[in-house]
Amino acid sequence: MSPCITMNNKKNTLIALTGLFISAALLSSCGPDKKQQEEQAQTVAQVDAVETPTVVPVPVVKGKLSSTIAVPGELLPYQQVDLYAKVNSYVKKLMVDIGSQVHQGQLLATLEAPEINSQLAGAQSRIQQQQAIYFASKATYDRLVNTSKTPGTVSQNDLEQAEAKKNADFANVEAAKSAYKEVGASVAYLEIRAPFDGVVTARNVNLGAYVGPGGKGTDPLFVLQDQNRLRLVVSVPESYTGGLTNKDEVTFTVQALGTQKFTAKIQRLAGALDEKLRAERLEMDVYNKDKKLLPHMYADVNVPLPSRDSTIILPKTAVVTSTEKVFVIKLVDHKAQWVDVKKGIEANGQVEVSGNLKPGDQVVKQASDEIRDGSPVKY
Rank of each mutant, 00 (worst) to 15 (best):
M1G: 15
M7N: 15
N12Q: 14
T18G: 14
A25F: 04
L26T: 09
C30L: 15
Q42F: 11
E51C: 11
V56N: 14
P57M: 01
V58Y: 05
K64D: 07
T68Y: 05
T68K: 09
V71Q: 11
V71P: 08
L76R: 12
L83E: 08
S89P: 01
S89V: 07
K92N: 09
V96L: 00
V102A: 04
Q104M: 13
A109H: 08
P114M: 00
Q119P: 04
L120D: 14
A132C: 03
Y134G: 12
S137I: 04
A139S: 10
T140P: 07
T140M: 03
D142Q: 07
G152W: 01
S155V: 00
S155G: 04
N157F: 11
D158T: 06
L159G: 05
E160G: 04
A164M: 10
A168C: 10
D169P: 00
D169K: 10
A171L: 06
V173L: 05
E174I: 14
K181H: 09
A185P: 00
A185M: 10
A185T: 13
E191P: 11
D197G: 03
V199D: 06
V199R: 06
N204K: 06
V211I: 04
G217D: 08
V223K: 02
L232F: 08
S235F: 10
S235V: 10
P237G: 07
Y240C: 05
T241K: 06
G242W: 13
N246I: 13
V250L: 05
A256S: 14
L257D: 06
K261E: 12
F262V: 07
I266W: 11
R268T: 11
R268Q: 15
A272N: 10
L273A: 00
R278A: 13
R278D: 08
R281W: 09
L282R: 09
E283I: 08
D290T: 07
L293Q: 01
L293N: 01
H296F: 12
D300C: 12
L305F: 02
L305P: 01
R308Y: 13
S310G: 09
K316A: 14
A318Q: 04
A318W: 03
K325A: 09
F327H: 11
K330W: 02
D333V: 14
A336V: 03
W338D: 06
D340Y: 10
E346M: 13
G349K: 02
E352G: 02
E352M: 03
Q362F: 00
K365I: 02
Q366N: 09
A367F: 04
E370K: 12
E370T: 07
R372E: 12
R372Q: 15
P376I: 02
